[in-house]
């Protein structure tokens, strides 16, 4: 079932001589439950695409359909509701609030959802346990390792039980071993039925996904969806 559809999406920053074309004529369909990697060089537009899909940015042209609804015309309030319930983010540098505890960081998405205090607590501990960081609930992000911080970020992304998880270079700030552990977690999340879209420039990271989209100069360069194509694509890239 199609969950994301982009039609001729374009994004331009600045005006006149300061104009920068970040995306042009991007057409893309992503089905529910897919694990997609978006690859590309620095400045290719992959993060812009992720921001548009995540409703953190709005396209200059084209149409963005999320679960069949046109998102373009939505106001800030509706977009924030989408970010709070349908889509979640995992960022490269974890994006945790250092003055809050692990528990409070995971609680952030639930502040914007009507949910009982008991259910909120149960949900937070459920995901902390699932990611094996329950013991760290009262610690501050600065008191835990990078890998643990990223697990907190994933728990936070999962706690609102979204349908789509967007990850921007999720292993970029981690060592290899921790990165692999994390990718296994993400794979497991995808296996549970969540749609996973990862922006990365790392082939190994991309190899975990079932579909790789490559972006060059704001345009989709390739979109490889089957396993054989995938292996070929990875080997070519390496």
């Amino acid at each position: 079932m199609e969950i994301i559809r982009l039609e001729n999406i374009g994004k331009i920053y600045g005006k006149d001589s300061y104009k920068t074309i970040a995306l042009q004529n991007v057409n893309l369909k992503i089905n529910a439950g897919e694990f997609v990697s978006i690859m590309g060089a620095s400045g290719s537009g992959k993060s812009t695409l992720l921001n548009i899909i995540g409703c953190m940015d709005i396209p200059t042209s084209g149409s963005y359909y999320l679960k069949g609804s046109l998102v373009n015309g939505y106001g800030n309030s509706k977009l924030s509701k989408i970010r709070g319930s349908v889509i979640s983010f995992v960022f490269q540098h974890f994006a945790l609030l250092n003055e809050y505890t692990v528990y409070e960081n995971v609680e952030l998405p639930l502040l914007n959802i009507k949910i009982s205090r008991r259910e909120k607590k149960e949900r937070i501990y459920h995901y902390l346990e699932q990611l094996k960081i329950k013991d760290l609930a009262n610690k501050k992000p600065t008191q835990i390792s990078g890998g643990q911080q990223q697990r907190v970020a994933i728990a936070r992304a999962l706690v609102s039980e979204p349908e789509i998880i967007l990850a921007d270079e999720p292993t970029g700030a981690l060592d290899q071993k921790t990165g692999i552990e994390l990718l296994e977690i993400m794979k497991a999340i995808n296996n549970e039925g969540k749609t996973l879209i990862i922006v990365t420039h790392d082939n190994k990271v991309a190899s975990y996904s079932k579909r790789i989209i490559t972006i060059t100069d704001g345009k989709i360069d390739s979109d490889v969806t089957n396993n054989s194509d995938l292996e070929e694509k990875i080997s070519k890239s390496s």
């Binding site: 995540g54 953190m56 800030n76 309030s77 924030s80 509701k81 970010r83 709070g84 319930s85 979640s88 983010f89 960022f91 994006a95 945790l96 609030l97 952030l108 998405p109 502040l111 914007n112 959802i113 936070r156 609102s160």
Partner: peptide, 13 residues
């Protein structure tokens, strides 16, 4: 604020 917005907070909040 970016983190709050990314986790579903609105500009109004």
């Amino acid at each position: 604020f970016g983190i709050r917005l990314a986790t579903g907070a609105s500009i109004n909040s």
